[in-house]
Structure formats: structure tokens, C-alpha cells
């Protein structure tokens, strides 16, 4: 494992911890899209089916279990916790995420490494992860103001994707057998979706001002 991959995993973990901290400390999930969180839970559940079939390393297994458990916990809190669910911006979270599910599934049926149950679901999880942030970005754009922890959450999530690209570039040169085109192309698309957010994030950071997205 190279340093980019490791830092990518760590920023992914940090983003989830920031989200859990926000929900736990403020008992609020305002600014957070339940649809994006549900899509992520589905991404992890469909991608990590290999927990039952392949053992890669203790690190790999533990991280997978942490991602599954934390995403399910976040969805549960947003749906069922008496205080947290009241703060959910349901009227702003209107992105039609079923289209993302359907499109990702159809694409996975067409483009996969092998036509097998686990392989198709793996491709589905890669395509779905690439677009799962969209309901979250739309919600932030609609609400305009982004609270500090929510802004940090999205920033670290984007940083994770960017670091994975560096990881692939590194692997491309170090490991000539590394060909994972589905993941690499989807990863590029996914990272590109953050470009706009990153732009406004750095402006607010440079001006030491609160993060605001244009309407």
C-alpha cells in the first residue's frame, strides 16, 4: 500500500468521523443529505460482499466493517433518532436519487469485469459511489450557508477521492499489472464533481470567511 492510498483511506475515515461528531455533538443533521448517506450505505454493502469470499488483510477487513457500520449508524440516526431526525432538511433534499440507482445498475449490467453476481454488484457500487455525492452537493447549494462541520465533511470526502487518483498514478508506474479501468474512470468522474465545491472552499479559506455557495 502506498502513502497516497493510505492517506486517502484516512481522509475518508476522517470525513466519516467528522459527520458522526457533528451528529453526536449537535444532535443535528441539518445540511446533510439522507439520500447521499443511504446511497453510501448501499455502496459499502454491495462492494464489500467480498468480506465473505476473500481475505486481503486485517487492515482491509477492519476498514470495510467500519465503513459499513458507520454508514448504517448515520442512516439510522437520521431516520430514527428523535432529535436528529427533526433537524433533517427534508424539503431541500429532493434530488431524485432513484435515477442514480437505476443508471448505475444498468451501467453495471453493461460494463463489468466479469458477468458474475459479485462482479456486477462491485461495478454497481463503483458507479454509484461516483455520483452518490450529488444529492449532498445539491442540498448544500440550495441552503447556501454551509456550517463548518458539514463543509469539512465534504472537503475530506473530496480529498479522499483526489488522493485515490494519486494512488492510481503511482500504482500505474510501480505495478505494471495494475489495470482497474472501471474504478479509475469512475474515480475521475467522482473527483470532478467536487471541483466546484473545492473552488468555493478554498476561496472561503483564503479569505478566512464562512463557506458560502452561490445560489
Amino acid at each position: 500500500m502506498n502513502i497516497f492510498r493510505f492517506l486517502g483511506d484516512m481522509t475518508h475515515l476522517i470525513s466519516i468521523l467528522i459527520l458522526l461528531l457533528k451528529i453526536y455533538a449537535t444532535k443535528s443533521c441539518s445540511g446533510i443529505s439522507l439520500k447521499t448517506q443511504e446511497l453510501y450505505a448501499l455502496v459499502f454493502l454491495t462492494r464489500y460482499l467480498d468480506l465473505f469470499t476473500d481475505f486481503i488483510s486485517v487492515y482491509n477487513t477492519v476498514m470495510k466493517l467500519v465503513f459499513i457500520a458507520s454508514s448504517l449508524a448515520i442512516v439510522w440516526c437520521m431516520r430514527n433518532h428523535p432529535l436528529v431526525r427533526r433537524s433533517y432538511d427534508k424539503q431541500l433534499d429532493t434530488f431524485r436519487h432513484y435515477f442514480l440507482l437505476l443508471a448505475s445498475f444498468l451501467l453495471a449490467l453493461l460494463l463489468h469485469e466479469k458477468f458474475a453476481f459479485q462482479e456486477v454488484l462491485w461495478a454497481f457500487s463503483i458507479y454509484l459511489e461516483a455520483v452518490a455525492i450529488l444529492p449532498q452537493l445539491v442540498l448544500l447549494q440550495r441552503s447556501g450557508n454551509v456550517d463548518n462541520l458539514t463543509g469539512q465533511y465534504v472537503f475530506f470526502l473530496g480529498a479522499y477521492r483526489a488522493l485515490y487518483i494519486f494512488n492510481w498514478i503511482y500504482r500505474y508506474f510501480i505495478d505494471p499489472h495494475f489495470t482497474r479501468w472501471i474504478a479509475c474512470v469512475s474515480g475521475l468522474v467522482q473527483t470532478a464533481l467536487y471541483a466546484d465545491f473545492f473552488y468555493y472552499y478554498f476561496i472561503s479559506w483564503k479569505n478566512n470567511a464562512k463557506l458560502q455557495l452561490p445560489a
Partner: peptide
């Protein structure tokens, strides 16, 4: 890494 081999990334 074979194309449909073990996927070591998360």
C-alpha cells in the same frame, strides 16, 4: 493484479 482478481482497494 488480474482484472477480476482480488480487489485490494476500499
Amino acid at each position: 493484479t488480474e482484472p477480476s482478481g482480488v480487489k485490494d482497494e476500499l
